[in-house]
Simulated scan of single mutants.
Amino acid sequence: MTAVHVQRKAFGSLEVLGDIRFTVAPGQTLAILGPSGVGKSTLLRIVAGLDPDFEGRVRRPERLAMVFQEPVLLPWRTCLQNLTLVHPDLTEAQAMDLLRRVGLEDKAGVFPGQLSLGQQRRLALARAFAGRPELLILDEPYVSLDEATAAEMLSLTRDLLREHAPATLLVTHSEAEARSLANRVMRLDGSPARLVEERPFRPREREALA
């Protein structure tokens, strides 16, 4: 179980996050919505342990992975090496299977700079799941993709989530993306940002977008 209680987060005198508390269990996906600049990505960095400068407490599992808004890949390494070097216990056969799952099996020897943005995002997703994360953090992973590519990525992510069942946090501006992937949604608003709504998605809401 991931349990988060952020009492306060500030950058100097600017307070950006107020009192925010939530949990997410294995197999659950919690979507975080809110206006641009409200602090959603800041909250994710706190949960991931990338920003320890806050008041509050986060309990997270040991194995976690984060997919950023921009694919953070090793440009001087091939697609296959982007998996095997980051996860040394991953065999080449396992890495190739993951590349196959995300439709990049024929790109194993290609460098990230030779891929389209959609393919780079697929590789970033494969790398995240390569570590068998107990907690998966997705920070607007479909931003800047065309509609068809975003739909393909959503379907792929949904399949991988069902297969691996990590606890998942998804930041998105899209209600449709949230309904497609999440069991629950919470909204942040205000200055400093606070939790203004948290509710489950009804099954029929999700099925309509599956």
Rank of each mutant, 00 (worst) to 15 (best):
R8E: 14
R8V: 06
K9W: 05
A10D: 10
G12S: 10
V16T: 12
D19H: 00
I20R: 12
R21A: 15
V24G: 05
A25D: 13
P26W: 01
P26F: 03
G27R: 13
A31N: 07
L33S: 00
L33N: 00
P35W: 04
S36N: 13
S41V: 06
T42N: 05
I46R: 00
A48G: 10
D53Q: 11
F54L: 07
E55R: 14
E55D: 14
G56W: 12
G56A: 10
G56V: 11
R57W: 08
V58D: 07
V58W: 07
V58K: 07
R59G: 08
R60S: 15
R60P: 09
R63A: 15
L64S: 14
M66P: 02
F68M: 13
E70C: 06
E70I: 09
V72P: 02
L73P: 11
P75A: 12
W76P: 13
T78M: 10
T78I: 08
C79D: 06
L83K: 01
V86E: 05
P88I: 11
L99M: 10
G103V: 02
E105L: 14
G109L: 02
P112V: 12
G113Y: 09
L115E: 04
L115I: 06
Q119G: 09
Q120S: 08
R121F: 02
A124F: 02
A126D: 00
F129N: 02
F129L: 11
G131A: 08
G131R: 07
L135M: 03
L136A: 10
I137Q: 05
D139M: 01
E140A: 05
P141F: 05
V143A: 15
S144H: 10
L145T: 01
D146T: 05
A148R: 09
E152D: 14
E152A: 13
M153P: 02
L154V: 09
L154S: 10
R158L: 12
D159F: 04
D159G: 07
L160T: 10
L161D: 05
H164A: 15
A165K: 15
A165F: 04
A167T: 01
T168H: 03
T168P: 03
L169H: 00
V171E: 07
T172Y: 00
L181V: 06
N183F: 04
D189M: 05
E198W: 01
F201D: 09
E207A: 15
E207N: 13
